[in-house]
Design a protein around this nucleic acid. Structure first.
Lengths: 195, 195
DNA sequence: ACAGATGATGTCGGCAACTGTCATCATCGG
DNA sequence: CCGATGATGACAGTTGCCGACATCATCTGT
């Protein structure tokens, strides 16, 4: 038996997501979150750097996973394809089974500018880490940064469609479509047949 | 004669940029900024929504200018070229003469995550506005969003090089180089000859 | 089995960002 | 010359967030 209920961190995440959904991010106080989780305010800030971070706990793991998948991609793949491969694998491995959670989370984020800022800097960090991984593969700058930014742009737009669409198209498929569209738009040719 | 010194807003911007540069964003208080500007804290928050916004006062005007230049671009231009044109024109019209200011401002932003978040959401707003402008031109989604995101990525990377490089290459030139590199990276061909 | 180390949580006090509200007073249109 | 307007000041209150110290179950070594 432990002195406290287990999984304090998870209870805080759960309570925060619920409250942000019920009352909105701004009008829920940290005191309310900790009360619902049965903890104190001070403890909240020991687990999360600030009130926003509680929605982004998984970002670090996602970044590590993406980077390692880029590292594992065949050296023969051009940079944008290495990133596309990593995105597809991660989409199938971790997102497909969490669609409802992702929807609730994105709804909270979409409703508040501060949360959008935090999401954007997480994506920027992802982009920066992917660019580093590409440089490890011998890709020069600014190609590395641009391929990473382009890959994140594709992911962002595909993810947005995935959480908004009423249909059930897989994230992986939406990523493929967006990547093809980007290639068209920048004047290149897609590697797969469209529609 | 007016009751107060003129240009309160400008004095606040100036004082804030100085102090963020001298002591960093976090360790300067709004009280210090207003003291240097000869105003009160309450007045600061009448001019700027929060402590970060004082560095981003020009973002709205930049967005309007970019959108109007996309609107004015020849209808025959493909979407990515319409955006590229707008970026080049804005680079020459407003940035080239403010390089030193831009350097100081970017130094403050680079040193603080909260300011980076704000910068990122301004760029996201820019991207969203450009996507709207492309849709006005008849560009379908997701092509409009992707072209806008790609254009902003190019601008971001070119701007970063422009403020970091010790050399004096024009922003417009760096934008052209980054755009060509993006086209290469996504599998297309650049419209200009490289190097 | 016991003592001390460890680690998660609680308690308390405080700073600074931000807000609501009302007062002040120069300027301007009539 | 008067009332409206608009920018600023004064002041009190809420809340995010942090430092410092206390508590106490579990772990670790002997």
């Amino acid at each position: 038996m432990s002195r406290w209920e287990p999984n304090a961190r998870g209870r805080l995440e759960q309570a925060a997501l619920e409250l942000y959904g019920e009352s909105g991010f701004e009008s829920t106080t940290v005191a309310e979150i900790t009360k619902r989780a049965g903890l104190t305010e001070r403890t909240f800030f020991r687990h999360f750097a600030d009130k926003r971070e509680v929605l982004f706990a998984g970002a670090g793991a996602l970044q590590e996973m993406l980077v390692s998948k880029v590292n594992d991609a065949p050296a023969s793949l051009p940079p944008i394809e290495a990133i596309a491969t990593a995105l597809h694998e991660v989409a199938d491995a971790v997102f497909e089974e969490r669609r409802e959670f992702a929807r609730r989370r994105q709804a909270a984020i979409a409703a508040n500018a501060e949360l959008q800022e935090r999401e954007l800097i997480k994506l920027a960090s992802l982009s920066s880490a992917l660019a580093d991984a590409l440089r490890e593969r011998g890709v020069a700058d600014p190609a590395a940064s641009l391929a990473a930014e382009a890959g994140i742009a594709v992911f962002k737009i595909a993810f947005e469609r995935w959480t908004n669409d009423t249909g059930e198209r897989a994230l992986s498929q939406l990523i493929r479509e967006s990547m093809d569209e980007l290639k068209l738009v920048t004047g290149g040719q897609p590697l797969t047949t469209r529609r």
